[in-house]
Design a protein around this nucleic acid. Structure first.
Lengths: 148, 148
DNA sequence: GCATATTGACAATGCACATGTCATTATGAC
DNA sequence: GTCATAATGACATGTGCATTGTCAATATGC
């Protein structure tokens, strides 16, 4: 688009994200999950039990909205509350057996799809690309913070 | 996050996009532009005069919404309508002198920022990353289409 | 010339998230 | 222990992006 690969790379993040989210959504159709419920389950899958505010912090969205997402997973029986020794009003959320199985399967399917799609890409280059994208993101973020 | 760089790369598109859009928005503060007005100007800057439906097609969003964005740029005097020989009801949109100067400056500033931020990245790797990201996006899209 | 397609205008809606507020309870300093 | 302060959940409202639907006006292709 421009003659700066760096600039174009940054701008490609939107189409990539849209394509990725569309794919994820498609993969969820037969699971009864929504994208936002999936996000909660994924957090617990990756980091173990968490409280609502902790999830909000990691997702960088407001705790009020996370509460909503979480309540849906509770209602669906995919997560459950466990007493939190560190804070009595803020239970830790835990995957139920069903929830754990579901999110593991969803992630496995997504992983398989991506690996299939990227089978002919050079792993070295992929690793390098990941590093670059992470660096760019970090730089852009810190730049935004330094003059708010 | 996972042990698949490819999977992580896809998921990094969201944070990158958010950081990028935040940066763009910040850069627009003193121009009176909004992000969506900027998108219209950018299209005209890159592709010359276009009609509303043409812009919609390129941005892959609905023409009704583009109409809204475009009307704002018209109201701000950044674009103007010119008779369209190919369709009498659908004027071609053209950047005004002001609009052209503004978008050129905005893009130049963004480019400068990105180049500064990525100054220490290996250009070869950046090019490779762009290629990979484009390939992934295309694959994900075509995968989504093939079973709608 | 007439069926069909485009376009612009406008209204309604959905969705993701932010913001504000409140009551309840924890927590930490003393 | 007491008390000010902070954290949490619940709820209500607002906002921005974008879609969907609809209509009338007009073009276009056959």
């Amino acid at each position: 688009m421009t003659d700066s690969p760096l600039y174009d790379l940054v701008w490609m993040s939107r189409p990539l994200m849209q394509a990725a989210e569309a794919s994820v959504e498609k993969g969820l159709v037969d699971t009864g999950l929504t994208v936002r419920m999936r996000a909660v389950l994924e957090m617990l899958h990756a980091h173990g039990d968490l409280t609502v505010p902790e999830i909000a912090e990691r997702l960088e969205i407001k705790r009020q909205y996370v509460q909503l997402m979480v309540n849906e997973t509770l209602a669906a029986g995919l997560t459950e509350q466990r007493p939190n020794p560190r804070h009595k009003r803020s239970p830790r959320l835990s995957l139920t057996e069903t929830g754990a199985r579901l999110i593991a399967e969803v992630i496995a399917r997504e992983l398989a799809l991506i690996e299939r799609i990227g089978a002919d890409l050079d792993p070295e280059e992929v690793t390098a690309a990941l590093r670059i994208v992470r660096a760019l993101t970090a730089q852009l973020k810190s730049h935004a913070e330094e003059a708010p």
